[in-house]
Nucleic acid binder design. Structure first.
Lengths: 142, 142
DNA sequence: CTCATTTGTTATCATTTGATAACTAAATAA
DNA sequence: TTATTTAGTTATCAAATGATAACAAATGAG
């Protein structure tokens, strides 16, 4: 296997993924939520519960900036802190009911667009896609 | 095929892709180049030659802001305009020699990290990965 | 030829984001 | 017990980004 070729393919592939997801989320824009705040919400949604340090690390934000943005999200009542009883410096961050509703809504919109993109595909093509994502997920993007 | 399940898998998958590429490019930081400018450079590198409108559309930047950032890249002599002789409002944008050198360097660094990530995989796993990317690229991320 | 459209430019301002210093409180190690 | 480390906060400033208006020049349609 020519690993340089594979790298080039990888670059093209990830570029495509970014482009597609970019286009999918392009029109999602929530009142009073900035890009960074949306990313935080997305991260919480997928990885709930998370700590502030995890947000900071995974989203490559400094702790002070993470703290600032989270504060705004909490003020908007989209998420909440639950103090860790074992270590009271830490807290878990969760979506509130309002936040959950919002993100459910967002993901529902995304799903509709996703369905549009795949509705011309045959059953066997869908299975190929499923299998392909599974392979990449387990072997490479683990 | 349960298409909702597939969507959930898609979300997890794209999240992983973003995380991995995020980590790969995390340490790439070029003197005097901002994030947006880097994205423009990356886009030019992959899609050369491009027009300003394409940059604007694909990167979801307004035309004025694209123009501003491109101007800085041109001032840094990383890319250049080549006026379209058919339509003199337009121009193709290309990397200069300096820009090419820079991006070659960047992609080389990325490739090293990429190789690290895959060097524990067997030949047959690599082939699976190649095949999986190919399928997704042609069937879905086209 | 004239007018509308397309492609890009320049200037300006508000908002977002990034970076850093100085801080608190809890936990842990010596 | 005291010192150190960890987790997060608050304040502040600079820089990057987003948004918009007013513009110019080339093209295309009628």
């Amino acid at each position: 296997m020519d690993k340089s070729k594979l790298f080039q393919q990888f670059v093209r592939f990830t570029t495509s993924v970014h482009q597609v997801t970019n286009d999918l989320t392009k029109e999602i824009n929530i009142e009073n939520i900035t890009t960074v705040q949306y990313k935080i919400l997305e991260f919480i949604t997928v990885s709930q519960p998370v700590t502030l340090s995890e947000i900071s690390e995974c989203l490559h934000l400094s702790l002070p900036n993470s703290s600032r943005e989270l504060k705004k999200l909490i003020q908007s009542q989209l998420c909440e802190k639950i103090v860790d009883s074992d270590d009271r410096r830490k807290f878990d961050i969760l979506l509130t009911e309002k936040g959950t509703e919002l993100m459910d809504n967002v993901f529902h919109q995304l799903e509709l667009k996703f369905q549009e993109q795949i509705n011309h595909l045959t059953e066997s093509e869908l299975q190929e896609i499923e299998e392909a994502m599974k392979i990449l997920q387990t072997k490479f993007f683990a």
